[in-house]
Design a protein around this nucleic acid. Structure first.
Lengths: 202, 202
DNA sequence: TCTTGATTGGACTAATGCGTCCATTTTTCG
DNA sequence: CGAAAAATGGACGCATTAGTCCAATCAAGA
């Protein structure tokens, strides 16, 4: 008997998504489907078999990223030293943002925002909004514990996240940013955590 | 006698720039020259007479914005209450960023960054980099005065600017952001200044 | 091996858009 | 008013690209 219908090659599906994310990141959404096909070592027709159109391909890329992003966003349980927890969170945020993958995904979403507003919203919810929400909960908890004195956890969470991320995200979008060493990431996240703790000490 | 050569209509020059900035902000850089001409109530040929090509038009828009942005970026002289100076600076930064004009200009620059890296760099230098540099100088001065204790003014300036701006710039780029009232701007800038002062108190 | 569906690649259509050309009209200034 | 330059608008050439079509090829499973 023949191959059952609907048996499209899953490995190719991923290869297409990877290549598309890469090319869109480099050239912007103006990148051509032909180039994506070349990069994925796949025929253009195959892309259209898997995803029906360019907008749907873009959607698929962002959706996959949203799933990736949302997963590991668990705030640590209250630990003995909230400052350490904050520094760790800061490191992971900064590391994620400085990734080429993270930047190209953001650039894509920004560019498609005018045409597909729901995509941009989903991305924002999955990334920035969720992480800040979790952080706010953490700060509220630490305040109940008496280890911090955060009167407005939502605003404070915004402050901390922003201190860590800083202008780096914008700098990445503009293509203006030297490479960061892990030591520099440590230093920024550590300083941010320390100053934040001082600003919100009980 | 005839009109002297090179006597292009300066009012039209501005109208073109305004319209182009508007349309690019709405549609992205994919916006057509025809639509810009329509919006500026000018013929397409006239645009090409004033600016030679689409990239040059984009450059002209960003250059104008760079000039606008750089001008008013003067940090107040040391005042009696540095917290008030910081709050004022924060208000002006946030206000500028939440402008439709500011956002569309940033979006344009981000989109053109791949093709015209020097443009993106000029924009970054004129805006974020310069304002942070001025702020860092201010913080160093206040530290010399003994009113604050800022050991790393550059990093601290980054922290303060980021606290104020927060995720709002990204949210604007993604088209995900409700309108801000002046009262909210006041509150965010005021809180940021207060917490920052506490974090860097002498 | 044989059947069937997926994949390939290359040609093709339709649309869009940059930039040009040009005859006509409008503006400026002596 | 009159000459020269600029602005208009509409048509046009040319390039790019999304998406389709199709005949030939490949791959998997009974």
């Amino acid at each position: 008997m023949p191959r059952a219908p609907g048996q499209i090659d899953l490995a190719k599906t991923e290869a297409i998504l990877d290549a598309a994310a890469e090319v869109f990141g480099e050239r912007g959404l103006a990148a051509s489907m032909e180039e994506i096909a070349r990069r994925a070592r796949v025929s253009k027709q195959t892309i259209y078999n898997h995803y029906g159109s360019k907008p749907e391909l873009i959607r698929a890329i962002v959706d996959r990223r949203v799933a990736e992003i949302t997963a590991p966003l668990l705030m640590p349980e209250a630990v003995d030293h909230p400052q350490e927890a904050l520094a760790a969170l800061g490191r992971s945020m900064l590391t994620a943002i400085l990734t080429a993958r993270g930047t190209s995904m953001l650039r894509m979403t920004v560019e498609s925002a005018a045409e597909q507003p729901d995509l941009a919203r989903a991305f924002f919810e999955a990334g920035p909004a969720t992480s800040r929400r979790r952080l706010a909960e953490f700060l509220a908890m630490e305040t109940e514990n008496g280890r911090m004195a955060v009167d407005d956890p939502v605003l404070a969470a915004e402050f901390f996240a922003s201190m860590v991320i800083g202008g780096h995200q914008i700098a990445q979008l503009l293509g203006v940013e030297r490479q960061f060493t892990p030591a520099e990431i440590d230093r920024v996240a550590g300083e941010a955590a320390a100053r934040f703790m001082k600003a919100y000490s009980a």
